[in-house]
Design a binder for these strands. Sequence first.
DNA 1: AGAATTCTTCACGAATTTCTCACAATTATT
DNA 2: AATAATTGTGAGAAATTCGTGAAGAATTCT
Lengths: 226, 226
Amino acid sequence: MNKKRVLIVDDEEDMRFLVCMYLENSGFECLQAENGEEALELVKQTKVDLILLDIMMPNLDGFALCERIRALSDVPIIFLTARGDEWDKVKGLKLGGDDYVVKPFSPGELVARIEAVIRRSTYHNEHKADGLLSFEAMQIDEKGRRVVVEGKEVILTLKEFDLLLFLARHRGQVFSREELLMRIWGYDYTGNARTVDTHIKTLRLKLKEHGRFIKTVWGIGYKFEV
Amino acid sequence: MNKKRVLIVDDEEDMRFLVCMYLENSGFECLQAENGEEALELVKQTKVDLILLDIMMPNLDGFALCERIRALSDVPIIFLTARGDEWDKVKGLKLGGDDYVVKPFSPGELVARIEAVIRRSTYHNEHKADGLLSFEAMQIDEKGRRVVVEGKEVILTLKEFDLLLFLARHRGQVFSREELLMRIWGYDYTGNARTVDTHIKTLRLKLKEHGRFIKTVWGIGYKFEV
DNA sequence: AGAATTCTTCACGAATTTCTCACAATTATT
DNA sequence: AATAATTGTGAGAAATTCGTGAAGAATTCT
């Protein structure tokens, strides 16, 4: 297994440096960001396996940053927080595949939590393909890569299927062409964004839908809606 | 009906012992493992009908162990978990043929869940009918390693048979060449993925099928379909 | 050991998919 | 109403992937 890349977001340089040392000694690769903007850039431009996020930061605070990151990626996030008021807030959070760690923490504890979250998230990603996405007029068999619309099977190519699956999994959420390229084609893919349009076109054709599933959000991108 | 064998994986000895008592009173045969390594060994060396897996274990946690087991076998798994954060996480999981039970549980509930999972498990179904996989135009005798297509026996080589059997057992599911190599040739096999193609070729030839059983999923791999 | 069978690798053409681009159609802005 | 920006679409080029035959290893059989 290749090294997992952890992004450390904290405004205190000493803290970042310390945590970075711990993690690199434990076999992780580390990236650092001093503020939300830097963090977002890194998430956009590189593949990150996990984010360690200090909640108390000036300007863009941890919670806000979390939302922005979530718009880009499902990367798991571990919140770092001092015991006190913030702790209650985090406790009340809906933590998807995420976790939180209260300062001060021991190196060992942190590493253990990181490993657990990463394992869980890769497990989740791999097994998320186990199920059957079912809507009123459409069923998507992820394991068998089959799509059935109104009882009839529709044959899709790889990219068509991946695109449909991604949109369906995140139904209701709008994605720009660039985001779709990044998350379906891969973060390092460099290609024309209009390629997405072409696949949307063939998808719509094959699904015999007339704006029923894939909606165009003018000026932004596309989204899936029942 | 012969006794079903359940493997209990939990680091707490008391817990294992207690569950074991329950199950043996309910007519199951029990195996115990204290950690992931032991569990893997038992899965490799004996026939297990179901695994009861405590998620919170030191070292190799439940999710990671689950992955390792899945590389070896399709045996159904029931996750045991304490109510709390983990419970939410498991609840959000898409469990294939699997299930989860929240501690503390009543003996009756546990037994009922186990029986339900075993009943609906395809793994179990495929294995119980004295090892005979039967489709309309094809019968596969697992024990005798014989294949009959339209009433006529077809002689297959070892790899051909293993490949056909694996795909047939997981009908409808697409597998990449790499996955097939891992699960048929062995997880540590390092060889050319296109080797799979060659075996698919000879299989198709011998089965005299014209895209009837083994379907190519372009860009991904192969799957078995009635 | 030698023969026979099975397994694996390789390479090439064929088939399929993916991407790009130009232009038409649509929507928003001035 | 005209203009600009954005999206839809068709066609063809480019890239990828697959099927297949052949030939070299590896294994099993005699």
